[in-house]
Computed example of a mutant assay.
Amino acid sequence: MKPLPALPPQTAGEWAYLLLSLRPWHAKLAPFARATLEDRLHKHGLGKEGPVVHLLDGQLIDSMQTTSKYASYLLAATALDIYHEGAYYVEGGLYRVAETLADSIRENGGVLKKKTTDCIHEKKQRLDRC
């Protein structure tokens, strides 16, 4: 996935990358380039709706580390559109997830190929050097 342009662009390189990334249909977004989410909420009569603003701010703090007052409208729209269920801890950590997937592959007749052969794991056995 190509990295998205930095917003707002600050260096000549960031401006060049942004301009090269633009497509004709992006022109309709130009009026919102400097707007905050708070600006748009007020435009639609939602700026003083405390529970709505509180909910949006909570989601923005989690995804953008800012609130509707400071969040770029275009970036906030993207951040709020992305489904987010929160952070979870997997019992045993990510190693346990990988171990379970490997076991399932073997049990279903698959062959597990690893990038390196330095570490050989038998079930329930972990080598210190891995």
Rank of each mutant, 00 (worst) to 15 (best):
G58T: 05
G86S: 12
L80M: 01
A71M: 05
I105Y: 14
K69N: 07
L46G: 06
E91G: 09
L60W: 00
G58H: 05
L55S: 05
V97D: 00
E49A: 15
G47M: 04
E91W: 11
H54T: 13
L60G: 01
G47K: 04
E85T: 12
V53K: 09
I105P: 04
G109Q: 04
T78C: 13
K69E: 10
D57K: 07
Y83L: 11
Y83P: 07
G47L: 05
Q59P: 00
S63R: 15
E99Y: 03
Q65R: 11
D81K: 10
G93H: 03
L56K: 04
T66H: 07
Y73F: 08
T78H: 13
S104Q: 03
K48D: 14
S63I: 10
A79P: 00
L56C: 07
V53Y: 05
G47F: 05
E85P: 06
Y88E: 06
V53E: 07
V52L: 12
Y83I: 09
E99W: 02
S104D: 02
S68L: 08
A76G: 05
A79E: 01
D81T: 07
Y70P: 09
R106H: 09
L60N: 01
I82A: 08
A98D: 07
I82G: 05
E99I: 00
S63T: 14
G50S: 14
R96G: 04
Q65C: 04
P51I: 08
S63V: 13
R96N: 13
G92W: 03
P51W: 06
L55I: 06
I61N: 14
L74K: 02
A87N: 12
R96P: 11
S68T: 14
T100P: 14
V90R: 09
H54I: 08
T100L: 15
L74P: 01
M64R: 03
V97N: 01
T66M: 11
Y95M: 04
L55R: 08
A98Q: 11
R106D: 02
L55P: 02
G93W: 01
G58N: 08
Y73M: 02
V52I: 12
Q65T: 06
A79M: 01
Q65G: 06
V90Y: 10
G92C: 07
S63A: 13
Y83N: 09
V90P: 07
G47E: 06
Y83E: 10
I82P: 00
S104H: 03
T78S: 14
L60I: 00
N108M: 13
V97H: 00
G58K: 05
